[in-house]
Design a protein around this nucleic acid. Structure first.
Length: 426
RNA sequence: GGGAGGAUACCGAAGCGGUCAAACGGGACUGACUGUAAAUCAGUUGGCUAUGCCUUCACAGGUUCGAAUCCUGUUCCUCCCA
């Protein structure tokens, strides 16, 4: 099956500038393709994953992926899909972000293979040195403002008189177009992929390449990932789900996937995993037949955690999840318990703090980070959502002492059904 | 430059002298039901040493027994005219 068919089966093709020609071109041999990632934070998040994984899919099919860290474009800010002007990042932040994002990109693509190694580029390298006058003459001249204004990203903001769009963001598409043109010229990059909101930026690049190089390059957009319940994909109570384990722990990352809505799980298996069609079809059948078995969810969570954090970390996260959600703590041993220490948020306190009269339970929940304030903890307790060592607490006056320590040193806190934390006495 | 209107909790939006920690909606959290799902129903949604106390309605003052509500000034936003 060709790569395009594969992507289509997975529901990953939103739009293509010329499916027929691209199919033909891909059939003729390896192609270089790129996708840009703007360093808006010091880590990528699951929302960035679809295009990144798509790059890898192309690489697996023998093509040459170029991951572009947007040192230049990130300095400007892409108006696509944004309803308001953003603040510019400082240069230092940008530098840090790029460095961090580069590392993450490097993990998902194969840079070692000799046949078609991936490449990691930064568009600041070829943009920073271009003077404003040169840019206006060499790039700007090829675009009419009329066509720029017609782009959805710009039009949306022009129609909204309350927010408007700065000249800076308005120019964003030219920079991205310049990237594509530059990559075509220097790396013979013939395809750009990106989220569906990138359509306008991609076609701008295609036009520039045609005008300046008289050559045809292609664009392919991937769908915007939507949750069945209408919320934004990749967001949780705590915010975005990041790839950086320092921001989103491996356990939380695993949990994020395991809690996927039933209606989304098969779609996500197709979007995000490299599992073969047959396997996904199997999982779909198993899920339809016995949803409470949650086999598809587990497969998804394992595949994703594996991909981002590696096998060892996945096993730990999985083990911790099994212990916590596998039916009570009764009879578990110390070594088993230790599996969850450090996986779920773990806070250390001085043993002396809970000796004698001990600490108020509400305070402990605030310390653990599960509750925002004493008042909130009290409300949660009144609602029946506060558990210590998996026992529901109903008295706000309760004080926790060394008596309650599991194995002489840990306390297992739970708020609600699935928010765990461990407190360890030093 | 002239004129009009506005700024309320996470968001949207009521309130226009006391009964306002502030209606209602969304979101979020918790409980029940379940499968760590969805849907549904219920509770909660400023802080606290908690049948009470404290700090909030852009900011700073003032009037009043009493202000989110009235007055003055400041900042920001929107609209209309030039």
């Amino acid at each position: 099956m060709s790569i395009l068919h594969e992507l289509a089966w997975r529901g990953l093709i939103n739009d293509c500038t010329d499916t027929e020609a691209l199919t033909k071109r891909l059939g003729e041999g390896p192609i270089a393709l790129y996708c840009g990632f703007d360093p808006t934070a010091d880590s990528l998040h699951v929302g960035n994953l679809v295009p990144l994984i798509a790059l890898r899919r192309f690489q697996n099919d023998g093509h040459i992926p170029i991951a572009l860290a947007g040192g230049a474009t990130g300095a400007i800010g892409d108006p696509s899909g944004k309803s308001a002007e953003r603040n510019l990042l400082t240069r230092e932040t940008l530098q840090q972000n790029i460095a961090a994002v580069k590392e993450q990109l490097a993990k998902l693509l194969d840079f070692e293979t000799t046949a078609n190694p991936a490449q990691l580029l930064d568009n600041a390298d070829w943009t920073a040195g271009v003077s404003y006058l040169d840019f206006l003459r060499d790039v700007g001249k090829h675009f009419t403002v009329n066509s720029m204004v017609a782009k959805e990203s710009v039009r949306a903001r022009m129609q909204d008189r309350e927010v408007g769009i700065s000249y800076t963001e308005f120019s964003y598409m030219l920079l991205q177009a310049f990237d594509f043109y530059h990559l075509k010229e220097t790396h013979d990059c013939e395809l750009q992929i990106g989220g569906s909101d990138q359509w306008g930026n991609i076609t701008a690049g295609i036009e520039l390449s045609r005008r300046k190089l008289n050559t045809t390059v292609y664009g392919l957009t991937l769908p915007l990932i939507t949750n069945a319940d209408g919320t934004k994909f990749g967001k949780t109570e705590a915010g975005a789900v990041w790839l950086d384990p320092a921001r989103t722990s491996v356990y939380k990352f695993y949990q994020f996937w395991i809690r996927t809505d039933d209606r989304d799980v098969v779609r996500y298996l197709k979007y995000f995993t490299f599992l073969p069609q047959e396997r996904i079809t199997e999982l779909e059948a198993s899920h339809t037949e016995n949803p409470s078995g949650r086999e598809a969810h587990t497969a998804l969570a394992v595949a994703m955690t594996d991909l981002i954090h590696g096998e060892a970390a996945t096993q730990e996260a999985q083990q911790a999840s099994r212990i916590l959600f596998g039916g009570g703590l009764d009879g578990i041993g110390e070594s088993t318990f230790n599996e969850i220490v450090g996986e779920v948020p773990t806070v250390e306190i001085e043993r002396t703090q809970i000796e004698g009269d001990g600490l108020p339970i509400l305070e402990l929940f605030v310390t653990s980070g599960l509750c925002q304030s004493n008042g909130q903890a009290r409300k949660d307790l009144q609602g029946g959502g506060i558990n210590l060592n998996n026992e529901r607490q109903s008295d706000a006056q309760t004080r926790v002492t060394t008596e309650q320590l599991l194995f002489g040193k840990h306390l297992l806190l739970r708020k609600g059904k699935r928010n765990y934390a461990v407190i360890t006495a030093k």
